[in-house]
Computed example of a mutant assay.
Amino acid sequence: MDLRIFTEPQQGASYDTLLTVARATEDLGFDAFFRSDHYLKMGDVSGLPGPTDAWVTLAGLARETRRIRLGTLMTAATFRLPGPLAIQVAQVDQMSGGRIELGIGAGWFEDEHTAYGIPFPKEKFARLEEQLAIVTGLWGTPTGETFSYSGTHYELRDSPALPKPVQAPLPVLIGGMGAKRTPALAARYAAEFNVPFSSAADTERQFARVREAAEAAGRAPSDLVYSNALIACVGKDDAEVARRAEAIGREVPELKENGLAGTPAEVVEKIGRYGAVGAQRFYLQILDLSDLDHLELIASEVLPQVS
């Protein structure tokens, strides 16, 4: 079971803070550092000093880390045109020496689009489908050949399809709870399927849909990695769990119901429940980025028992 650290910088984090957490992620033995791709805070937080761009951040971290994998959970397809996105991700993969993963989704938070003048189209899922075809098509085109695409929303003519990422193929992550279109898209394009913030029972149902879609597409279901994203709030005892829950404005019972919260033993037991329904990887959503002791506790008391 891989454990990855997942941050939400739109809630309030500078690049320097993210770098500190990424270095701790690497030093403590976690598999990867991921971040959300949002431009507006959510909920009753200050959001200061303001948003950081996901791919600018990852470019910096690519040069300042050596081992951990880096990626987005999830880049919004509404934020970037597919051609420039393919260039950005390929370049950052080169800068990292081949450690980048592209998590991509349709985009959903209308307010952040309005706040920064980003169009918020109605046909978001259809645009995501075309973006995946274009990005993977550009990367997969042999060097020296050109790539063209004619869709409803995007058109490319005789693109040189450069630059190429180091990885061939570069892993693409798709996630969500859609019953039909999302599993079908994952079966066609994804190296990994992620279920965000859901119960083990709902996870099991969604993993089954993805496996069925993979088989229908002529692909072995085992070709994909199956993962979960859940909030983490771990303490050496109940008092420490309560303190960490208060720091992020959440209640302990709710966190235990909906996330990975409690003592290390409790969290290991719950991870096991998800593992029993097919989860192979966890993205631990860490909301208090100043609490590096939290990461150290998970690394010392949880990671050895599940990896």
Results as ranks from 00 to 15, higher is better:
M1C: 09
L3C: 07
E8C: 12
E8P: 07
Q11V: 11
L18N: 04
V21Y: 06
A22F: 14
F30N: 03
A32P: 01
R35V: 14
D37I: 02
Y39H: 12
L40R: 11
K41L: 09
M42P: 03
G43R: 07
L48G: 15
T52M: 03
W55D: 02
V56E: 09
E64T: 13
T65A: 06
T72P: 00
A76Q: 12
T78W: 06
L81Q: 15
P82Q: 04
P84F: 09
P84A: 01
A86W: 08
Q91W: 14
V92F: 07
V92R: 01
G97I: 04
I100M: 01
L102W: 07
F109C: 06
F109G: 07
Y116W: 14
E123H: 11
E129V: 04
A133I: 06
I134R: 02
V135M: 02
V135W: 11
T136N: 07
G140A: 13
G140H: 12
T141S: 08
G144Y: 12
R157L: 09
S159P: 06
L162M: 11
P165M: 03
P165T: 06
Q167E: 11
L170H: 10
V172A: 02
V172K: 04
G178T: 03
A179T: 10
T182M: 06
A186S: 11
A187Y: 00
A191V: 00
E192I: 01
N194W: 07
F197Y: 15
S199W: 11
D202A: 14
R205L: 15
F207R: 01
V210K: 03
E215S: 13
E215M: 13
P221R: 06
P221M: 10
L224C: 03
L224G: 03
V225F: 09
V225C: 06
S227A: 03
S227D: 04
A232H: 04
D238A: 15
A247M: 10
R250V: 07
V252E: 04
T263K: 04
T263H: 07
E269F: 15
E269I: 08
K270N: 05
G272Q: 00
R273M: 15
Y274W: 08
A279H: 05
A279C: 07
Y283A: 02
H294Q: 14
L295K: 12
L297H: 12
E301L: 13
